[in-house]
């Protein structure tokens, strides 16, 4: 494994923050080494500085993508932390449907964004909740978007294939039979669910108002990797694209206190969600 020196730590840490927003503590040199050493070696680099120089010069951005894939944490599972999905099923969806229906004869379009979708489990879990709650009601059109900064994560999410370790974590047996088909040693999401969702690559540090307004935003366990300043920017941008009566769900150990005064927390059973003031 290539060792990282203090000057490189500073350089690489800044570089990673610039390209991804992810802030890595410079005291944790092993984090850089275990995650980036193989990328450096694959490009024949003797040092991390050399890797950074090569990555910057690479107009195809291939090295930068690989660095992002290596540095991002894809820890996720189906129905990770049951709370937010119960919140969605029993509070948010009924309320939003109530607020949006009946106003016109047109179909109600409800837009949901999973802002750090990773390998897709969160968005597919949301799709399952919707499917279970509304069956195939023709009155509503759901637009489900999943975004992530990692190309590798987005590729897996789009493909919708999960190995048994990924499947066994969090997914109810009844949903497995209903929404997945056995695919060799893995499971693949069924077309009816796959057709409900879209995935694309997005860097949350960059402007994203072109995505339009959303009714529900899930932004869980991603801001924890950002600096306080970047968190403030992120949630302010989210406030701009959340509908006035929309819902924001963040990670269960995250807080918006001192980060974005535009949101107020509201409690439902054991969970919290945020709405604009």
């Amino acid at each position: 494994m290539i060792k990282i020196n203090p000057a490189e730590l500073k350089l690489i840490s800044q570089y990673i923050q610039d390209i991804s927003g992810i802030y890595l503590d410079q005291s944790k040199s092993y984090l850089f080494e275990t995650r980036l050493s193989s990328v450096a070696e694959a490009y024949g680099c003797k040092s991390y500085q050399e890797l950074q120089t090569k990555a910057k010069m690479d107009s195809t951005k291939k090295i930068e993508k690989e660095i992002i894939d290596a540095i991002t944490t894809n820890e996720t599972l189906f129905f990770r932390d049951k709370g937010p999905f119960e919140l969605l099923q029993f509070k948010i969806l009924p309320e939003i449907i109530d607020a949006r229906s009946s106003k016109t004869a047109l179909k109600t379009n409800i837009k949901i964004w999973s802002a750090a979708a990773s390998t897709g489990q969160e968005l597919y879990s949301i799709a399952i909740v919707i499917k279970e709650l509304l069956r195939d009601s023709p009155d509503y059109i759901f637009t489900l978007l999943g975004t992530d900064i990692s190309d590798a994560a987005i590729a897996q999410a789009s493909y919708g294939k999960y190995n048994r370790f990924e499947i066994e974590r969090g997914l109810d047996k009844k949903y497995l039979q209903k929404y997945f088909t056995l695919f060799g040693d893995s499971w693949k999401i069924k077309d009816e669910l796959r057709a409900m969702v879209n995935f694309r690559k997005i860097n949350l540090m960059q402007p994203f108002n072109a995505l339009g307004k959303f009714d529900i935003i899930f932004c869980r366990n991603v801001a924890i990797y950002f600096t306080l300043e970047d968190r403030k920017k992120l949630f302010n941008k989210m406030a701009d694209i959340l509908a006035d009566d929309g819902y924001l769900v963040i990670g269960s150990t995250e807080s918006l206190t001192g980060i974005c005064p535009k949101f107020i927390p509201k409690r439902h059973l054991r969970s919290i969600f945020y709405q604009k003031k």
Binding site: D81, S252, T253, T257, I264, P265, R267, R270
Partner: peptide, 30 residues
């Protein structure tokens, strides 16, 4: 695998305890 499951369990326990505290504080502060 066993080790990973144990870690997972420990993490879930810590996470749910932490989230209960943080969410209570969040509501109180608000």
């Amino acid at each position: 695998m066993k080790n990973a499951q144990d870690l997972q369990f420990a993490m879930n326990t810590t996470e749910s305890a932490a989230s209960a505290t943080i969410q209570d504080l969040e509501i109180q502060v608000s």
